[in-house]
Every structure is written in C-alpha cells, then in structure tokens.
Design a protein around this nucleic acid. Structure first.
Length: 567
RNA sequence: UGGGGGUUCGUCUAGUGGUAGGACAGCGGACUCUGAAUCCGUAUGCCGAGGUUCGAAUCCUCGACCCCCAGCCA
C-alpha cells in the first residue's frame, strides 16, 4: 500500500532499480527481502528497512520475502521470531507464502561447502579462536597463513564430515574459505565459514552441530531466493567482495547488493544489544515498554503504523551517516492522530470547581464534537453539573503576563459548557489551593455568549459526579541528551536516561464516555495530548492511559522563556 | 601509517554544468470554543583551497574532517 498521496520517492536505490529495469538486467523482476536476525525485538531502525524493502517491492510490482537470518542458535529465540512476525504484519506488510529461514538452506549450504572444499577453496582449520585472531594480522599488517591451510581435499572432506557428525568439541575446528591472508580487506583473509556449536536450534532442533557464518549464509540465501536487490546497511559494504567471491566460486546467481545508512534517532538508541541491556537491567519494563524505540514499544505507546511508515518515507534513504531529529517522528505521529483520534476531556491534575449559582442536583448533557477534522465522526453528550474538575495548570492565583487561563476574578469558557468566573479560592491549612468557587453565566450554554463578549481562554473539564478515575502514564524521551552514546569516553549511555521519562498520575479524572474504551484505542485529550488505553494493565474499572505524545504547547514555550528571563 | 564509504540550512533530504528546493525544528503573523489543527510570511546551507568553463554543489587537482572493518556476532 504505497502512500498514494506522496509522489514516488526518487532515492538512489530506486534510481538504481529503475536503471536495472530499463536495461532488463533481471528480466524486469524486482525481488527484495527483509532479513532480521531473531535475537531481539524490531525497532524503528528496522522499520526503515522494512518500509524500504516492502515498499520497493510494492512500487515495482515485485515481491519481498521475510527471512530469518538464524545462523547463530546461541543468541536466537522463538520469542523473537514471533515478535518479528507480529511487528512486520502490524506495520502493514505481508510476505504471502514467502516466510523463509536461512536455516532452511542448511543442507544446501553444506553441499556448497563440500563443493568449495573439492574445488580447493575451503579447508578445515585446527587453530583456536585465539590463534586465529593473532594470525589475522592488523589493519596495516597482513595476516599469516594457517599451518592447516594446505591440507589435501580428501583430508578436508573427511574432517568436515567429522565436524558435522559431532566428533570434535565446540570451537576446536572451523571451516575456512581459502582466499588471501594478505588482502587489505580483512573480510577476505580466509574467513570462517562454519563453526562447531553443539546447540539446539530454534528451527532445526538438534539436526546440526555445525553452523554456517553469516557472511557465507547470507549471500547464498539471497542467491537461492533469486533476490534481485539485496538492500543492507553501510557496514556490509566491504563484505560485498566476499559475497561475490562465494557466488563466483560456486557459479551462482548474483543479486545486486545496495547499501544505505541505518537510522539513528536523537534522544534514543538503536543498538539491539543496548536495548537488551535496558530490559535486562530493568531500566524499562520490557521490550514493549512505551519508552523503547521498538515497534512493540511504539505500538503500546499508541503510535500508529501509518505514522511510522510516513516517517520512514519522509526521512529518505541515502548513504550519509545521519541522526534524524525525533521531533520529526513526533510530528508524523501528531499529524496522523489529529486526523483519526476521538477528542475527549480528561483532567490530569484535578482541581475542584464548584459553580455556586448552579442548581444543586441539576445535570445537563452537553453536545461535544468528536473530531473537528472529520465531521463523520459525529458528536457525543457529556454530563455537566455543579461540581467539576479542571486541571491545576489552568488556574493561577497570580497569573503571569500572557497567561490567559483562569485566575481570580477572570472569566473563561468551559469547553462546550458555560462561561465561568472565579470568585473565591479555597485553601487547606497548608495554603494549598483545594477548590475554586466560581459563578457561571446561564446565558452562555454550550459556550456561546449571546452578547458577543469574548474570553481569552477555553479550558477543559469533567463533571465530578460522573468522572471516571484513571491512571495516566506520561511518557517522555528516554534520554535527556540527543546522543547518549557519543558524550565522551567516561560516560555510559545509561548515565543519560531521563529520570522523568515516565511520570505516573494515579488520580486523573476522565469523561464517562471513556468507560467503553478498548485496549489500544487512541484519543486526544483536548488541549493536552494523545493517549491510548494501555494494552497490558488497563481494566474497565481502572483505566490506564499512556500518553503517546503531547499536543504542541505554545504556552509551555512562553512560560519557559519567562522563567529563563527571571533566572 | 591498509581497505571501504561519506561531507548541501540546526536536523533529514533533493538537485548530476544554467535562479540551491522541500520537510521537520526555529522565528513572526492571521485565524480559532483545543495556546491544537489550519493558513501566511521569514532567517539560516553547498567541508576547504586551487583549477576547467561564459557559467561549478555538480567536472579536475590537492587537502581537511567523519563513519565502518582486526567475532568461531549479524
């Protein structure tokens, strides 16, 4: 489903593919793939790749496979496989019957390895990991050839067969490609193709005790699947000669590999290893903690798949290392939610308001618009009575300049309600404001003044008698600096976790229409932000809302600059 | 002091020899029963130095800076 509103992007990858189609290089075929390793949850950086690969397939009437790069059973898990499938589907993509695993090709890969041995292009090495590392050389010095490099084909065949049948302990031997220990490209210095790991595999069980390395597996898998354009990230650029070498030696079909820059986002991190650390060390509640940049975290936070796709389209694709401002993501989220979220009224920090001239037991039902951006979403009736709650933030005993909201003696409008004027402040013994006593103007029902008089502000409210109690979780950026990784050598990214990334409000009051709200449903709390029902913890008798993102807040800016002037 | 990539507004990104454009962020304004949304306006940029050319972000030369590679990880 390409964004029909947006013109088709003209990034360098699509330009290349168009050229390939013009020259009929792949017979007009376009076949991509998204190849995650199931060793963690998908994050928004993966979303960039997913949207790119599946998006290109759609645009060019091609296909996109989902393939698990599951060559290392020590790190991989079915929990991750399931989450990845769910996340890619949720983003809106489908791979038909083309769900593959690199492990589907283990037999074929083994045969190809035997073939390379027979060709004299691969050998069994008895060096330990440590010895191998020492002999690899450095960036500026060539490596040295292993003493086992020139074993005979028959000995290699025999040894490799014995590796497979489990006759050697883990780590004791490897199968290596015989290329060039002096190559300036370290990937070409006789890279390991197979290692011994007597571990059971999430997909192949106990069938294998040797597992192929990524570099060998990946290029052959792409070739087997007849991928036309293998789109990957920049760090694999100098692996390409190795992929070409394998495919050339085996005389196999060559996909075109194209590398692009991975996504970095300000105020968060994208490394799966570090995200795992946040989970394991309990900085967050799990992979789907709404502060996490994971797809599942964003989903639980209330972000829509459409806004993620729009975001991925807008950031573009190039080869520059780049860090996208998270404000762009937030913009895409607001833009989408503005069109689709039902407006409701919710009071986060309740301040009681009594309308002293309003009849004691009267209840009126005010008609409220569900979404001014979409008339078809209709209206609803919200109860109004003598005692209400408004937000603490909407009242100031001593209003600063440019503060338009309620203050002593001042008149404001209650949205869809009445004009009210603050007459009296009630305080407890400590001096905290606990109640406002106000009068309302019966002539202004619905919020309209027949005499045409204006108020400077309209504020939201809920009826005290009808309000639902709710817990609201205010989420903010996970880190308090744009680049938590790059501060300096003496700091860790965990030093910069935003202590205010989660604020839990227990005593919130929301309008009664929310009683029937279902998990993951999204709302705009007018004047406050976008919220969704938490999919894990919300219950009908105790609603839990997650703040997805705030509304743009001009007043907060003014206030911040006022405070800055003071100090 | 090896190899591979990269450098265009604050941030992403177009532009491939002919007026440097868009988006977000910023700033200013209009409108407003959400200080939202919407609308309008506006500042800011070709890594540097030479060269070729009527004309260079684009071509050439030299330089600077940034990223990736020394896992039996992917």
């Amino acid at each position: 489903m390409p964004d029909s509103e947006n013109p088709v992007a003209a990034d360098f990858i699509r330009t290349l593919i168009r050229k390939d189609n013009e020259t009929n290089r792949f017979g007009g075929r376009v076949h991509t793939r998204f190849p995650p390793e199931p060793n963690g949850y998908l994050h928004i950086g993966h979303a960039k790749s997913i949207v790119l690969n599946f998006g290109i397939a759609e645009e060019f009437d091609g296909l996109c496979n989902l393939r698990f790069d599951d060559t290392n059973p020590s790190k991989e898990d079915t929990e991750y496989i399931e989450s990845i499938i769910e996340d890619v589907h949720w983003l809106g993509y489908d791979w038909g019957n083309r769900l593959f695993h690199a492990s589907d090709y283990f037999d074929q890969l083994y045969e190809y390895a035997v073939q390379l041995i027979k060709l004299g292009k691969a050998y069994v090495d008895d060096l330990s990991a440590e010895e191998l590392r020492q002999q690899r050389g450095t960036l500026t010095e060539p490596g040295i050839e292993s003493p086992y490099r020139n074993r005979s084909v028959s000995e290699n065949l025999d040894l490799f067969q014995k590796m497979r049948s489990g006759e050697f302990p883990d780590g004791s031997r490897t199968l290596r490609a015989k290329i060039d220990m002096k190559s300036p490209n370290l990937n070409m210095r006789d890279p390991v193709m197979y290692r011994i790991k007597k571990e059971s595999h999430p997909h192949t069980g106990d069938k294998w005790c040797i597992y192929p390395m990524y570099d060998y597996t990946h290029c052959v898998s792409d070739s087997i699947e007849l991928i036309t354009h293998s789109i990957c990230t920049l760090e694999f650029e100098d692996h390409r000669p190795l992929y070409d070498w394998f495919l050339d030696q085996l005389n196999l079909y060559h996909p075109q590999q194209i590398e692009f820059a991975r996504l970095n986002l300000s105020y968060t991190i994208m490394s799966k290893r570090k995200l795992l650390q946040l989970v394991k060390e309990r900085y967050v509640s799990g992979w789907d903690d709404p502060r996490m940049p994971t797809i599942s975290g964003l989903r639980r936070r209330g972000v829509t798949p459409e806004s993620i796709r729009t975001f991925c389209d807008r950031i573009g694709v190039a080869k520059n290392d780049s860090t996208v401002d998270i404000a762009l993501l937030e913009f895409c989220i607001r833009e989408d939610l503005n069109k689709r979220a039902v407006r409701v009224m919710g009071v986060l920090n309740p301040l009681k308001v009594t309308l002293t001239n309003y009849p004691e037991n009267q209840v009126e039902y005010m008609e409220c618009i569900n979404n001014p951006e979409d008339e078809s979403m209709g209206t609803r009736l919200v109860p109004f009575c003598r005692e209400l709650y408004i937000d603490y933030d909407d009242f100031r005993e001593i209003p600063p300049s440019k503060f338009y909201r309620l203050s002593p003696g001042r008149e404001v409008r209650l949205r869809y309600g009445y004009f009210i004027r603050c007459q009296e402040i009630v305080k407890d013994e400590k001096g905290n404001i606990i109640e406002l006593r106000c009068t309302y103007d019966p002539e202004t029902r619905g919020g309209f003044a027949p005499d045409g008089r204006k108020v400077q502000a309209t504020i939201h409210w809920v009826s005290a008698q009808h309000a639902l109690n709710a817990e609201v979780r205010l989420y903010d950026r996970l880190f308090n600096i744009p680049n938590p990784l790059g501060e300096n050598e003496n700091t860790q990214f965990t030093d910069f976790i935003n202590p205010n990334s989660l604020t839990i409000l227990q005593n919130c009051k929301v309008e009664p229409s929310l009683q029937s709200a279902k998990p993951t449903e999204r709302f705009q709390f007018e004047r406050v932000g976008y919220f969704c029902i938490d999919s894990r913890d919300s219950r009908p008798d105790c609603l839990v809302f997650n703040r997805t993102v705030t509304l743009k807040d001009i007043w907060a800016k003014i206030e911040a600059s006022l405070n800055q002037k003071k100090s």
